[in-house]
Design a protein around this nucleic acid. Structure first.
Length: 579
RNA sequence: GGUGAGGUAGCUCAGCUGGUUAGAGCGCAGGACUCAUAAUCCUGAGGUCGAGAGUUCAAGUCUCUCUCUCACUACCA
């Protein structure tokens, strides 16, 4: 059914910044849901391209490189590989994981800027910036510290005082110094930068956001409208830095007065979605234009973005300004799914403060499936969601080990024991079979709808309910009871049970791909029968009668080991998190 | 300060444009079963829906006030 209306879907998740392996909040809020969605859409027969990349420019990258004793390019190379590996460990099914520092993105960024300027959306202006003589660099506001003029706090940052919360300007700080080196040898200098005139675009942006009120989550539109209501300010899109995309003129030479300046990371990062798609095309001989050029087929592409709420403004305002202002037929996002935060024992996860659990550590203590399931079943969709070790344990033990894992185990091992490990024939359809059929007929289409709507918590809850229904079916059918008096009727229960195992494996693929693979290979399900073609379940050609009689199966080894109280203790000890 | 999101059973959360006895999972209590990772299945107890006022025949659902939590506030991304 779904194959009849196969769509071309472009999926991107917010680019993970380069300065370290990401924490579980980053994973839960962009990369993982994008992956789960991409996998589900592929199973439904859609033509999906999932693109991501490392976001490599900006001051934090330069500073992190310096701290690591590496050149910026060496550092980024190293961290790109680390992040790519972390993604692979969590089974993120990128079609391409690129880099914002690639040549393609450089070229696109420069071209966009030239087009924007030609259309009057870029203006060169002079501003004052703090320059640290000792560091030999301009400092972003937050890297300047000093005494807060409001409360006297001694380590107030140039953008905001951490003590009293007042918003500051670096020039307001008393006795300012560089947060990088601690040097007080700082001065205010005039510097020229390019400004993106977002204000001129606000009418069009407002109309565009307004047109998506119905299909975007409230979180997305409310953030965008808030900025529009406050009045868009023009944003500087260049910085005084070495590492990044050079600012050039139409001839391709460095623009006059822009030596030592590059584009601001937030200008080029979204452009890297396109650049990475071009890089993907170059490596695979794919066609990037059908995803991005509306004059080359991208009108027929559905573009879906995933991100944390902090990124919404950039994706609903700045990047669309870039796209619209270019006057060129670039694809705008169609559907934008934003997430709140996963919180960590009362606060936020923090890369800089090393608070929380990071992807490389997480994979060390539990298999990726465990994390994927828990983070999706508890996705921070309607509000921030608290992560606790106890909840993690409950998700894994109850949902995965008890409901799914035990189900697979109980029926496959019974089949091996009593029916020689093959799908048995015989038996009559009873109320139990009719009941499970009705359950599936109702739940599977609903589950698919939740995936299509990117309602992850609900999709997970529905999936779990289907697994639980399998256990209930076995209780009703009770093949072990029939076996004593009527082996044929026992065969019915086992056969349906085995079909359910196969179905559950098929359903589990987007969420817990490793376990799904174990189940499907134990059931000897060929690749071509692992897709989602079950909108209408029936006994004639539906998922309950998919396995041929005498089809051999085996009982997979225990799929999910339970998390013990001692594990929780050890992890709490190691990562903090005690309240 | 401004803006936004949220405060619904012990815990985590569903509840669309207001309409029968407010739902799910976990946890808890009792029972059933014994194929299974002491798993599973059934039943049950548990909520004055943050507080107060208002609109209405009718409000968790709309309006106002108050209160608590969290986030964003543009040069970290």
């Amino acid at each position: 059914m779904s194959n009849l209306n196969s769509e071309r879907i472009l999926v991107t998740s917010a680019l993970p910044y380069i300065n370290g392996v990401k924490h579980m909040g980053n994973l839960a809020g962009s990369m993982l849901p994008a992956d789960v969605y991409s996998r589900a859409m592929r199973l439904l027969g859609h033509d999906v391209l999932y693109i991501c990349a490392t976001d490599e420019h900006g001051t934090p990258a330069e500073l992190a490189a310096a701290e690591a004793g590496l050149s910026v390019s060496e550092y980024c190379e190293k961290m790109h590989i680390a992040q790519k590996e972390a993604g692979a460990n969590f089974k993120l099914s990128y079609d391409y994981f690129g880099r914002s520092s690639s040549a393609a993105t450089h070229k696109l960024t420069q071209d966009f800027a030239l087009a924007l300027e030609a259309n009057g959306f870029i203006e060169e202006r002079t501003s004052q910036q703090v320059f640290s003589v000792a560091d030999g660099r301009y400092l972003p506001d937050r890297y300047v510290e000093g005494i807060c003029p409001n409360c006297g706090f001694e380590a107030a940052r140039g953008d905001q005082c951490d003590n009293c919360g007042k918003l500051l300007d670096p020039v307001d700080l008393i006795n300012p110094y560089s947060a990088v080196s601690g040097s007080h040898d700082v001065e205010i200098r005039d510097t020229n930068h390019l400004y993106l005139k977002q204000s001129d675009m606000s009418g069009k942006l407002r109309d565009w956001v307004e047109s998506h009120r119905a299909d975007w989550p409230a979180l997305t539109t409310s953030i965008a409208m808030k900025w529009l209501d406050e009045g868009l300010r023009d944003r500087a899109i260049t910085r005084d830095l070495e590492w990044g995309v050079p600012v050039v003129n139409a001839e391709g030479d460095v623009r006059d007065g822009f030596e030592g300046k590059v584009f601001y990371v937030w200008f080029d990062a979204p452009i890297a979605y396109i650049g990475a798609t071009q890089d993907w095309a170059a490596e695979t001989e794919g066609d990037w234009e059908k995803f991005w050029r509306t004059d080359k087929g991208a009108d027929a592409t559905r573009y879906v973005q995933f991100m944390g709420k902090d990124n919404v403004a950039f994706h609903t305002l700045s990047f669309p300004t870039t796209i619209m202002g270019s006057g060129q037929p670039w694809k705008l996002v169609d559907e934008l799914k934003a997430f709140n935060w996963v919180t960590w024992y009362g606060g936020k996860f923090s890369t800089s403060q090393k608070r929380g659990v990071f992807m490389d550590q997480a994979i060390d203590i539990a298999p990726s499936d465990y994390w994927r399931w828990h983070l999706m079943a508890n996705a921070p969709e309607s509000s921030d969601a608290a992560f606790t070790w106890e909840d993690f344990q409950a998700s894994v033990n109850s949902d995965l080990a008890n409901v799914l894992g035990n189900f697979v185990n109980r029926i496959t091992s019974y089949c091996v024991k009593k029916f020689d490990g093959v799908v048995p024939e015989g038996g009559e359809i009873t109320d139990a079979e009719k009941w499970i059929q009705a359950e599936l007929a109702e739940r599977l289409p609903r589950m698919v709808s939740f995936y299509e709507a990117r309602e992850f918590r609900k999709a997970m809850a529905e999936t779990r309910a289907v697994w639980a229904a399998g256990n209930e079916y076995l209780t009703q059918a009770a093949p072990w009871t029939h076996y004593k008096t009527n082996v044929d009727q026992a065969a019915m229960g086992v056969r349906v049970g085995l079909n359910l195992v196969a179905l559950f494996g098929v359903l589990a693929q987007p969420i817990i791909p490793d376990a799904a693979e174990k189940i499907l290979s134990a059931m000897n399900i060929p690749e071509q029968f692992r897709t989602w073609n079950f909108r209408e379940a029936s006994f004639d050609d539906g998922p309950l009668n998919a396995l041929p009689i005498n089809h051999p199966i085996s009982a997979p080894p225990v799929l999910f080991t339970k998390i013990e109280a001692e594990d929780i203790e050890a992890w709490t000890e190691r990562f903090g998190g005690a309240e």
